[in-house]
Amino acid sequence: MTEMCSVNGIGMQDINEKTETADMTAKNTMDKSEQRFGKVLLLAAVFVVVLLLAILATLVAASIPAIKAFGLTFFWGTTWDAAAEKFGALPFLAGTLITSFLATLICIPFSIAISIFLGEYFKEGVFSAFLRSSVEVLAGIPSVIYGLWGLFLLMPIMRAIEMYLGVTPHGVGLLTSALILAIMIIPFSASIGREVITLVPGDLKEAAFSLGATRFEVIRNVIIPYARSGIIAGILLSLGRAIGETMAVTMLIGNSNFIPTGIFDPSNTMASVIANEFAEATGITAASLIYVALVLFLVTTVVNIVGTYVIKKVALEASKEVT
């Protein structure tokens, strides 16, 4: 099929003949390579689906001993005791819920402030470029470094606060973990928030301004209501992040397998108990940890699908609005 290149010195007739025969022979081989190309693409795409199903199947299969042994009581069992081979995941469910919700709560005012700052007050200019790259850097710092930093700055501060309040000064625990989680998810939810805020059509804002609204009133009555579902989805996705976040929490939560009774208590999340114990676990202990991983996987999957779906819908509606 490449004869076309040597055109020099060949009559037009020759070229026609040549390309024709080339076409004839090429037709078959081309159809084949065309098909092969399509197959390869399809194969790669299907592979991704298979990969995900395999992950799910592996988790289910490997946790079957634990599922058989504990079934649904796993979710309200309060003791996690490897020696007695008695496993209930409630302490970790509690630890995960408390840290991630607390983190999300702390994160909300800051991330919304950043979203409004970047999406409305300072859309361009040095100030916004600085904040935007800072947020990006913050998002890029590895989890383990947040943990390290937390150990050396946050932990002593928390310990001082705990001493002042007269509670046991662990330094590590639920609140410390929630704080580090909040710092870690702020950039993520802020960038989603900024995106959905910039999706608010400019002519709606102008309409509100032309009626005499202040910028605050425009933000409160036009921008936030319009962007609300997107902002909520962003917060949901951040929550999903916080639930699955491992290293920093593992380093700062205090590794305790009991139901926490206070906000300063050491605890464990689903992710951190796996990180702490899986390497040494065997038999039913390992199966129980994998059971925890399965639950973690399912929870984050649901949160992510819902959040992503809502954001997509918001973006779609905004694009309709424009056209």
Binding site: P201, D203, L204, E206, A207, A208, S210, V222, P225, Y226, E321
Partner: peptide
């Protein structure tokens, strides 16, 4: 009062 080129009622 101002009326814009493209109709822009508040959709929410």
């Amino acid at each position: 009062g101002m009326v814009f080129q493209k109709p822009n009622p508040f959709p929410m």
